[in-house]
């Protein structure tokens, strides 16, 4: 039985599980150029979104893997009770958002936007592998620059930072409605 290319890709991605597998590895294994594999994978991402599949194909920072669909969660919960899922505090979310949109960014720059110190928060986010240090700024004191990690992309289901939604803009005329409804 000859499997189609997509089936082979599906099988390989299944085996590698949460580790994920990169485009290059797939391309090497199949001896097919990355361009073509990428095309197939993009098609597969769309294929899996339809209602005939209980899991979907995701890609975070060039690593492809399968994850179950969010709708499955409720059914799983009927079989085994699930404890409250992981939470991110408002402060953590804001800090992450600022870094993701402005990276690489220094601690002072983050604090300027948030108006509060975030030394401890940065340590926490680093410990959770959501943020990492990426060199130093050339400005006075050569402060450390921060950026978000692959783990961040995965956690927010982003293929890359390009997928981040645009920052909202507020118009003066309808400021009340837009800002605070």
């Amino acid at each position: 039985m000859d499997l189609t290319l997509k089936s082979i890709l599906e099988g390989i991605i299944f085996v590698f599980g949460e580790e994920g597998i990169s485009l290059k590895q797939l391309s090497d294994a199949l001896s097919i150029e990355e361009e073509h594999i990428k095309e197939l994978l993009n098609e597969m991402i769309i294929d899996y979104r339809d209602e005939n599949h209980g899991f979907e194909l995701v890609c975070a920072n060039d690593l492809y893997k399968f994850i179950s669909k969010a709708d499955i969660h409720d059914y799983v919960q009927r079989i085994i009770s699930l404890t409250k899922s992981r939470q991110l505090s408002q402060s953590a979310l804001e800090t992450l958002a600022i870094i993701a949109y402005k990276q690489p960014i220094t601690r002072t720059e983050i604090e300027e936007i948030r108006g509060v110190g975030c030394d401890m928060m940065l340590k926490k986010l680093q410990a959770q592998d959501l943020v990492r240090e990426v060199g130093r700024s050339e400005s006075a004191g050569r402060p450390i620059l921060y950026e978000v990690t692959e783990e961040f992309l995965d956690l927010f289901k982003l293929m890359s930072l390009n997928e981040l939604p645009n920052l909202p803009t507020y118009q003066e005329e309808s400021s009340d409605n837009q800002l605070f409804e």
Binding site: G17, E18, E19, H73, S85, D154, F156
Partner: peptide, 12 residues
């Protein structure tokens, strides 16, 4: 984030 928390993956 909350949506992604509902999605599970399998270890290798």
């Amino acid at each position: 984030f909350m949506l992604r928390q509902k999605q599970f993956e399998k270890p290798m």
